[in-house]
């Protein structure tokens, strides 16, 4: 099986889907002539022309809303946010329009749109560029939220998102674009709402998505040396959440720690903890723990950033 980068996997997903369906187009800042701020859309303009790879000026609310309008009448836009931090100026379009129009219209107008781009803190880019916003979007009925951790999942989830008839938020790991993994050449999707056991274990379930899957896999290796067997569960989709897989894993291990890069207050890990206590109360040997960043806007200085990001238990 070919080994390709996470970035290339996402690129292949868009390219192959655009070959298959002429109603799909990509729109965003620097997606065309510049080949993408993170080069995820590399080469798409040359292949599909300016009609289907549309460079937008800096107007997230405008082009996100244009995507929603185009989706209402049957096109299938992929809207790239240069980073999800900038999605905050488009949140009215995502939350008030994309997520609600199917319901507000009594089921007449569904919105087949993908909002994608990198999220989560990178390295020393300061507070406005270091945010994990998945908890925001996972809160909203009418949206789906996916967060791939591997190249395989990136391609399969993005393809599933593009084929989905609903608005899907695809938050990519900003620091994962250069990571590599096996990706089959034949067509496949990763179904939205299906989690994945990234490592089997019997003593404890570590729940993590995106970049934190890799952190947990490292931790599992270290703990193995101490005789502790960790299961690493990657939900891959935060909305809908694969509760069944979560419950079966925790029922097996009896312990659960959720590891996320986001803030603790109302963070997504709180929902995981709720589901675990609701469905696994009698099987738990210990309270569910969360590891999050510190509850502050991300500082710039490297030592402070490390301190802020590192293993805060709540």
């Amino acid at each position: 099986m070919p080994i390709i980068s996470y970035r290339e996997a996402l690129n292949q997903a868009m390219r192959e889907e655009m070959e298959r369906d002429a109603s799909i187009f990509v729109m965003g800042e620097e997606v065309g002539h510049y080949n993408g701020a993170y080069k995820v859309t590399q080469g798409l303009l040359q292949r599909f022309s300016e009609r289907r790879v549309i460079d937008a000026p800096i107007a997230e609310m405008g082009f996100a809303g244009i995507g929603v309008g185009a989706a209402m009448v049957g096109l299938r836009p992929i809207i790239e946010f240069m980073t999800f931090n900038f999605s905050l100026v488009a949140i009215d379009q995502i939350v008030n329009n994309a997520a609600k129009i199917f319901q507000m219209s009594g089921g007449q107008f569904n919105i087949p749109i993908v909002f994608r781009g990198p999220g989560g803190p990178a390295v020393q880019v300061g507070s406005q560029h270091s945010q994990a916003l998945e908890s925001f979007y996972a809160h909203i009925p009418g949206l789906k939220v996916v967060m791939p951790s591997t190249a395989y999942d990136a391609k399969g989830l993005l393809k599933a998102a593009i084929r989905d008839d609903n608005p899907v938020i695809c938050i990519e790991g900003e620091t994962l674009y250069g990571t590599t993994g096996e990706v089959p050449t034949e067509d496949y999707i990763v179904p939205i709402g299906k989690g994945d056991i990234k490592r089997e274990g019997k003593d404890i379930t570590l729940v993590a998505w995106s970049k934190m899957v890799w952190t947990c896999l490292d931790a599992a290796k270290q703990l193995e040396a101490q005789g502790i067997s960790c299961e690493v569960l990657d939900p891959r989709s935060l909305r809908p959440l694969d509760v069944e897989l979560l419950v079966s894993s925790v029922r097996k291990t009896g312990r659960c720690v959720v590891v996320e890069v986001g803030w603790p207050m109302c963070g997504y890990g709180a929902e995981i903890a709720y589901q675990v206590q609701r469905h696994c109360m009698d099987a738990l040997d210990a309270p569910v723990e969360r590891v999050t960043s510190d509850d502050v806007p991300m500082p710039y200085a490297k030592n402070l950033e490390d301190r802020c990001s590192r293993s805060r238990e709540t």
């Binding site: 809303g65 244009i66 309008g69 209402m72 009448v73 129009i101």
Partner: peptide
């Protein structure tokens, strides 16, 4: 195409429908 309750939030939607027609 609606029926929108957020003032001005539907203007990009109108532009989006028009973009689809051009597309």
């Amino acid at each position: 195409l609606g029926g929108h309750g957020i003032v001005g939030g539907h203007v990009p939607i109108g532009a989006g429908a028009a973009l689809a027609s051009k597309y």
